[in-house]
Design a binder for these strands. Structure first.
Lengths: 347, 347
DNA sequence: ATCCTCTTTGCATTCGAAGTCATTTCCTTT
DNA sequence: AAAGGAAATGACTTCGAATGCAAAGAGGAT
């Protein structure tokens, strides 16, 4: 059995250009390491004069508590993983910025994972486990087993704009159904007759939900529609419009797009490739309320997601669950706001 | 002097729903903790049969090495901070996604900091020091003292699209001078006479550099110009155009914008607010090559930044410096590519 | 069987801060 | 002045993995 060395045997690294430790500060201030630790902890018992001495020493040595060491001993990394699949979507950067700033404000750091392909998910999760994140916010498609892995490991998750498929998971979504109903109702009352829909990629939860909601509502109101699939980007809006024009013999007078970017692509295509007036000849609506939707040239009629409220809710839900892991999985649905815009003749 | 406890006194957490440690795996496989550690380390000496046993145990217990503990002992967190000021810029999401994916591919994790206001920088840096990141990529304005702090702490930095002001720091930039020269030369040869410039916010490095390059070149070619300041966003392109039209009595026939987003705002404004044809009545050029610049409605004549090559260089430079901190600060300048587009009559 | 080398393995220690517990200090009260 | 109690402080251990070092084992040559 070995005998433990005393702290004073440690050499100071503070002066050697490296980073100071709590021991360095302790020695410099003539106190124990425990005192230094307490000094940086909220509500710990330290005499005012001692605190002063220690803080002065800390300043002098440029001491910053090592979050890695803190994480090890407290079992709280103060890290949250944010997993996002397609950052180039125009919609997600805003969400990411909001989430990051809100988490920062709560003293939580963001470990960002951006997926190039869905197949990378497992590698990403591997890293998520290794870093012992306190929680995760996910805006990417996960298999049920992958979601279950979070539960197994006791890592709280909040899904953003998607729900757990088969697995109960906390989530924050923008209500596709009410949004699409508002759009469809407006279009129908606006005397449109031939409807087209541009769907998102098949593996997008919100994409499918929006299209399904729109289709159902049209059906309820006795209207038929043609559906073509896009992939959420500008070019696919253009391509899908061309396809729909072919299918409907150019009779289409209302187009519902699963997101704004495709709506914008379709608007440009209608005007430039088909010489149509939007909305006189063709009404086009989108979903999301991204920045370009309000540009003068477009003024897309769309449903704006309440990003601030949604991110606020996501962060709040996650933090709640980090602090009280027993909380049940809750789904929060936010109604979007109808932006009347100028790209559709709504009643 | 206290006597050290033996590892077997530790209780297993592997079965308790928590996370398995290397001790749990060791006990399960009937070996020592050191063996487990070696087993997960590249090129360490472990007998094949032992390795098998350990890997099997690890799989069974869902063991993932604790990156926090590894970081503490090895003094390598494998974390890199990415500090970005305005994520909503349309240009940065692409950069961020590229950087994140490239770093991931190198086994490095990204700690993301998104600034709401410049004043937040110091709080962000505080966190950067605490997490003992191995390096940082910065696309935000830092004071010389803030840059110096990185050097003091031996944390390598690479600046993205900005250079160290007064402090030598590694950086990756897109060449504003050659880019603006190409644009200006094209415009001048294209028989334009009344020039306007929409600058970026005064605190933007690239903004100032681009405008200065354009202004100088115009001067060299004996052309005068009016300059109005925007803030890089769409609305400010519109506002600045109005201001310039007022200043030049609507005679302006060439407009140089410090970025694409303002160019797009100006194009829309020219068409919609002033009934002008672009480029027949007014040529407008931008800078960046963001997604919307290639949309059918705009087809902005601009300089596209080679984002892939730039991010690749930034990551490579950072990793080099993490491994060999003595490397000198290098500045790498990438030439942009002229996208001829359709928003300007170039010669 | 003996000796020597090379590979495997385990022990003990270390990274830096947090927290438990025992001890000391300080102040108040009588 | 003594006693009581609260506040302040320090010694020591702990988190989980990496690693220097010594011991043990395997294999080869003689």
């Amino acid at each position: 059995m070995a005998v433990k060395k005393q702290p004073e045997a440690l050499t100071s690294r503070a002066t050697a250009g490296g980073r100071a430790t709590s021991y360095d500060v302790a020695r410099h201030a003539g106190v124990s390491q425990s005192a230094v630790s307490r000094c940086f902890k909220q509500g710990a018992s330290v005499a005012p004069r001692t605190r002063e001495k220690i803080l002065a020493a800390a300043r002098e040595l440029h001491y910053y508590p090592n979050a890695i060491a803190q994480g090890l001993i407290t079992r709280r990394s103060n890290l949250v993983a944010i997993i996002i699949s397609n950052l180039t979507n125009l919609y997600y950067p805003e969400v990411l910025a909001e989430l990051t700033q809100r988490l920062s404000a709560q003293g939580i750091r963001v470990l960002l994972f951006s997926l190039a392909a869905e197949s990378d998910v497992d590698e990403v999760l591997d890293q998520v486990w290794r870093y012992r994140v306190d929680g995760a916010i996910v805006a990417a498609r996960l298999h049920p087993e992958q979601l279950a892995a979070f539960a197994d490991r006791g890592v709280p998750v909040v899904l953003y704009n998607r729900i757990g498929e088969g697995v109960p998971v906390a989530s924050v979504c923008c209500d596709s159904v009410s949004g699409e109903h508002a759009l469809v109702d407006g279009l129908v009352e606006g005397e449109h007759h031939v409807f087209g829909i541009i769907a998102g990629p098949a593996d997008s939860y919100v994409g499918e939900e929006r299209v399904e909601a729109a289709r159902r509502r049209l059906q309820q109101l006795g209207r038929d529609c043609r559906i073509v699939r896009g992939n959420f980007d500008y070019a696919s809006g253009d391509a899908a419009l061309k396809e729909l024009m072919r299918m409907t013999h150019r009779k289409m007078d209302a187009l519902i797009c699963a997101n704004d970017l495709m709506a914008i692509g379709a608007i440009d295509s209608a005007r430039i490739n088909f010489g149509l007036e939007v909305p006189q000849d063709l009404s086009i609506v989108g979903f999301d309320g991204v920045g370009p939707a309000t540009w003068l040239a477009y003024q897309v009629t769309t449903i704006r997601q309440p990003v601030r409220r949604m991110t606020e809710a996501a962060v709040a839900m996650l933090i709640e669950r980090i602090e009280r892991p027993e909380l049940s999985p809750e789904q929060r649905l936010f109604a979007g706001e109808l932006l009347s815009g100028n790209s559709a003749r709504l009643a």
